[in-house]
């Protein structure tokens, strides 16, 4: 009786250890499976993209269908213009709203604002595109760089707002108090002391937001629309790198597929370098940053 009990316990501890080891292996395996797609996607884009990388890609306009050669310089310029328009709108709004949340944001309204910025982050980007379409494309009767930039700015705003808030909240209260104790006005304290101290965090947020919008495609489909030529002003359609990649990828032409891979490589490097670079210079980078 006694003996049987001991035996059963022995057997069960072995089993428990085996189960423990098996689960550990499973979790490690899950981790490998989760990381594998990144490795695969990066590897394929590098291998397929590297062939198409040449000076033409970034200096020439697209060649007519079926003709070899050509590039997508207009798309790179277009993307830069769209990002500039988006930043011009989103930075003031996002940073000042972030200042409000961090410095004065108590009570009901601030809670609502925080909730709505979170909501804004979760809205599908295609929906943002629809809104930019009804607000800008419809009244001006043309797809335009302006509408594309506006769509991207709506995507940027919540990220900039929340990272600004977080960055400023990390600025120690004692610094604010020291400034106020010296008789400096509150507004001057915020502008000259708090914001400069938290600037690193704000810049990080802005760069991450730029990395995100530089790859956004869905909201540009019916706003910026794409174009085979150089931009013709803010109220005309404009090309963008992710749009061009999409249009080339679903086309039936081999030359366009090659260019799509090449452009994908450039875009991917841009996004990854921004992400890795920014996060490696900020200590908080990987721990708390949202996905």
């Amino acid at each position: 009786m006694q003996r049987a009990l001991v035996l059963r316990r022995t057997r069960s501890i072995t089993r428990r250890l085996i189960v423990d080891r098996a689960m550990a292996t499973l979790f490690a395996l899950a981790t490998v499976i989760a990381v594998a797609p990144l490795v695969l996607v990066v590897a394929y884009i590098v291998v397929n993209g590297v062939r198409g990388i040449d000076l033409d890609l970034v200096t020439k306009l697209p060649a007519p269908v079926g003709e070899a050669g050509g590039g997508m310089a207009n798309a790179f310029v277009g993307s830069a213009i769209l990002i500039a328009i988006a930043s011009a709108v989103a930075l003031p709004v996002g940073i000042l709203a972030g200042v409000y949340l961090s410095e004065f944001g108590r009570g009901r309204f601030a809670a609502t604002l925080r909730f709505l910025t979170d909501v804004l982050t979760g809205i599908p980007s295609i929906v943002v595109g629809i809104v930019a379409y009804t607000l800008v494309v419809v009244p001006f009767r043309s797809f335009s760089a302006l509408s594309g930039g506006l769509a991207l700015s709506i995507i940027m705003i919540p990220t900039v707002t929340r990272t600004t808030e977080e960055a400023l909240k990390r600025v120690p209260t004692t610094i604010r108090e020291a400034s106020l104790a010296l008789g400096v006005h509150e507004w001057k304290t915020v502008l000259r002391i708090v914001i400069p101290t938290g600037l690193g965090g704000i810049v990080t947020g802005v760069m991450l937001a730029i990395a995100r919008i530089s790859g956004e495609t869905a909201p540009l489909l019916f706003t910026a629309f794409g174009s085979s030529f150089w931009g013709e002003g803010p109220l005309k359609p404009i090309a963008a790198v992710p749009l061009q990649i999409f249009q080339y990828a679903i086309s039936p032409y081999k030359e366009w597929h090659d260019q799509a891979w090449a452009a994908a490589l450039v875009l991917m490097l841009f996004v990854l370098v921004l992400n890795v670079g920014i996060r490696s210079v900020t200590r908080t980078g990987f721990q708390s940053r949202g996905v």
């Binding site: 989760a34 797609p37 990144l38 996607v41 790859g215 992710p242 990854l272 992400n275 890795v276």
Partner: peptide
């Protein structure tokens, strides 16, 4: 894993 989240959907 977070870099994976940064890769644009179109890629």
């Amino acid at each position: 894993v977070e870099l994976l989240a940064a890769i644009p959907s179109v890629l």
